[in-house]
Write a protein that binds this DNA or RNA. Structure first.
Length: 273
DNA sequence: CACGACTCCTGCTGGC
DNA sequence: TGCCAGCAGGAGTCGT
């Protein structure tokens, strides 16, 4: 379920239950997810105190003094804090036990990942999966100029370029459609054909939409921590996503759906040129 | 290098 | 009711 806002809300939800606490057990119920679990993960983490949590794109980072646990939720993953006596369900693959609580990872499709990066392997930013990532959309370094500069040689459609994550991270399939709608840009437009003025609109739209989604998620943190229910932050009123053939909320014209790189895109042919 | 197709996996929905 | 195709919010890898 996770685009950047969901990962950030997850991080904020679990952080107070993890930071400063000592890992008492690690339980793996599967050989791995997208990749095998790190070798000897329990030996690496048990008895160690958790430091600061962080996030890079859609990767959640759990810091220790000797390295970083990297967690990715893939398409279907989520994390919850539960009382450690809670019986595991079918797709609960990974537990990080901290005293009487457990950080539990559920991931039916197993596209997620749990990886370890030791300090002896260098800076976390140089990790193979993180080094090629673009800038964080909510940081100062993200700007229209950055989008403009990095797209001069990109003939691919702007939607695809946003999803690629090498210029800006965290914009997933939903928020790519929503951001382009808000900016009034047709998702099929070749990235190099978009000028600075339109990238100003797009950068602003991405910032506002992601920030609003995080804010909405933040208000459901209590639900997020509940033992059963799913986090409630996905129920948003999207302008175009998943609204094929329904009237555009601005102009009333039917929202269109198409495929770009095997993924669904939604847009309003009237509002987005 | 940039791009697009393919891939991993399970669960749900919609059509017949 | 059952079966099956198609699709799902990600992203690494490979061939061109």
């Amino acid at each position: 379920m996770p685009e950047l806002p969901e990962v950030e809300v997850t991080r904020r939800g679990v952080a107070p239950h993890l930071e400063g606490r000592v890992v008492t057990a690690v339980i793996l119920r599967h050989s791995g997810l997208r990749w095998p679990f790190p070798v000897d993960l329990a030996e690496k983490l048990c008895g160690r105190r958790i430091g600061v949590t962080g996030r890079r794109g859609k990767y959640l980072l759990i810091g220790f003094d000797h390295g970083t646990l990297i967690v990715h939720l893939g398409m279907s993953g989520h994390l919850r804090m539960l009382p450690c006596v809670t019986p595991p369900q079918k797709h609960d693959h990974f537990d990080l036990v901290v005293g009487d609580q457990v950080l539990r990872m559920t991931d039916p499709r197993r596209f997620g990942a749990v990886l370890w990066h030791g300090h002896d392997e260098g800076a976390i930013s140089e990790h193979l999966l993180l080094r090629g990532l673009g800038v964080e959309p909510l940081e100062e370094s993200f700007s229209a100029q950055l989008l403009y500069r990095h797209t001069r040689n990109r003939s691919a459609a702007i939607k695809q370029v946003l999803l690629a994550g090498d210029i800006v991270v965290g914009v997933g399939n939903i928020y790519a459609s929503e951001s382009l709608f808000k900016a009034g840009i047709n998702p099929k437009t070749a990235a190099y054909r978009i000028g600075l003025a339109r990238y100003e609109k797009l950068a602003l739209a991405i910032r506002e939409i992601l920030a609003a989604a995080i804010e909405q998620g933040g208000s459901t943190l209590r639900d997020f921590m509940a033992a059963d229910g799913q986090p409630g932050y996905f129920q948003q009123n999207y302008f175009v996503y998943d609204r094929a053939e329904q009237p555009c909320r601005i102009c009333g014209m039917a929202v269109r759906q198409l495929k770009q790189g095997q993924r669904s895109t939604f847009y309003c042919p009237n509002c987005q040129k």
